[in-house]
């Protein structure tokens, strides 16, 4: 059904989806004022583009799609003007401690308290993972969060962040390794000798 422009009420967007949009933005930018601005930009853009909303997709999905573009635009502008040095993306010294001179684990990865394959379906594990993501350094969290957005591929991410794919892979590797450590440390996982 084609939605008649007069039936669209942007105030309803704010009521129904404001919190969701704001949290989505905050997850990516971690700056409250900036997240508010991005939500506002997205809703104004949605209002201008209201004729393109075909009523078939869900309103929320449509709005998140517009917000996603605004967030990527923001990253693009930021990293084009000021490409980030490697040490913005990861702390080389901290991450290099993982292995000894011969490339062997300094400390072997410990087991979690359940099989990794089981953990995927566990609500507490999800919560623990989300908490651990929030502890990642900003830039690393940005790359990792974008990587898990279904609508984006690694190419989109490299362009937005102005980095090479090789660099992206390293960042994602370090992010995963840190998340694994974090899940082991924060209760999710008992180290078995």
């Amino acid at each position: 059904m084609q939605t008649d422009g007069s039936q669209i009420d942007p105030r309803h967007w704010l009521t129904a989806h404001g919190d969701v949009l704001y949290r989505y933005a905050l997850k990516h930018v971690r700056d409250r004022v900036l997240a508010e601005d991005l939500v506002q930009d997205a809703l104004l853009a949605a209002w201008k583009a209201r004729d393109t909303f075909d009523g078939r997709s869900q309103e929320r999905t449509w709005l998140i799609g517009i917000l996603r573009h605004k967030i990527l635009d923001y990253f693009r502008r930021q990293y084009r003007e000021r490409p980030a040095a490697d040490d913005v993306w990861f702390d080389r010294a901290a991450d290099n401690d993982r292995f000894d001179d011969r490339g062997t684990w300094q400390r072997r990865p410990g087991s979690w308290d359940q099989d990794p394959e089981q953990a995927v379906h566990d609500a507490q594990f999800r919560q623990a993972l989300a908490d651990c993501v929030s502890l990642l350094p900003d830039a690393m969290a940005t790359a990792f969060t974008l990587r898990h957005d279904d609508e984006l591929d690694t190419d989109d991410i490299c362009k937005a962040l102005n980095i090479s794919s090789t660099n992206l892979y390293v960042i994602l590797y370090r992010a995963r390794a840190r998340l694994r450590d974090c899940l082991e440390e924060h209760g999710h996982g008992v180290t078995h000798a």
Partner: peptide
């Protein structure tokens, strides 16, 4: 790390597992 990625993939983009504040 595969479990970590799969868990992330299971969370919809608007999921609030992060306990983020409302607008």
């Amino acid at each position: 790390i595969r479990a970590i990625d799969e868990t992330m993939a299971e969370l919809p983009p608007e999921a609030d597992a992060h306990n983020l504040p409302p607008l």
